[in-house]
Amino acid sequence: MSLQAYQQAAARSENPRDAEYRLFGQVTRALLDAAAKPPGDIQGRIHALDWNRRLWSTLATDCADSSNVLPDALRAQIISLSLWVSRHTSAVIRKEESIDDLIEINKIMMQGLSGQSEAA
């Protein structure tokens, strides 16, 4: 089976929560790789920072849609986090803040998506 066929089959069988977890994992790995770059190498970090900001922006847009079935309070929290991620990303690019906070937020989201926060 080719890689493309495997990816298509996996996408069809993957539930939305698992897909979000997988995407957060990929973006967080990119952020970890970016964090390992020298602090002055902002060009080496831009792709990961932009990808993370776009992920959060997409989540906020989805949560703002009235047809979203998540509870209103959770939707509002996700939108609020998205706004924080956007501001913090800008501060990271200006070298005023650390990329580590973005990584931590993503890890917390991944815990929630995997159900680990409910078990704790």
Rank of each mutant, 00 (worst) to 15 (best):
M1R: 10
A5I: 08
Y6K: 09
Y6D: 10
Y6T: 11
Q7N: 07
Q8P: 05
A9T: 12
A9N: 11
A11L: 04
R12Y: 10
S13N: 12
E14W: 08
N15A: 09
N15H: 14
P16A: 09
P16H: 05
P16I: 10
P16E: 13
R17P: 11
R17G: 08
A19M: 11
E20P: 01
Y21D: 07
L23Y: 06
F24L: 04
V27W: 02
T28R: 06
R29Q: 08
A36L: 02
P38H: 09
P39G: 06
P39S: 05
P39R: 09
G40S: 05
G40T: 07
D41A: 06
I42D: 03
I42Y: 03
Q43S: 14
R45P: 01
H47T: 13
L49H: 01
D50V: 11
W51Y: 10
N52A: 05
R54H: 08
R54C: 05
L55S: 00
W56T: 00
S57G: 15
L59N: 06
L59V: 05
C63K: 14
A64N: 15
A64L: 15
D65Y: 12
N68C: 14
V69M: 11
V69E: 13
L70V: 04
L70Q: 08
D72Y: 10
L74Q: 05
Q77I: 08
Q77G: 08
I78F: 06
S80W: 12
S82N: 01
S82K: 02
W84H: 11
V85K: 00
H88P: 01
T89F: 00
A91W: 06
I93K: 07
K95S: 12
K95Y: 05
K95W: 02
D100T: 09
D101Q: 10
L102Q: 02
L102T: 03
I103L: 04
I103A: 01
I103C: 00
E104M: 13
K107P: 07
I108N: 06
I108F: 14
M109P: 01
M110G: 04
M110S: 03
G112E: 02
G115I: 04
Q116I: 09
S117Q: 13
S117D: 13
E118Q: 15
E118D: 15
A119W: 12
A119C: 10
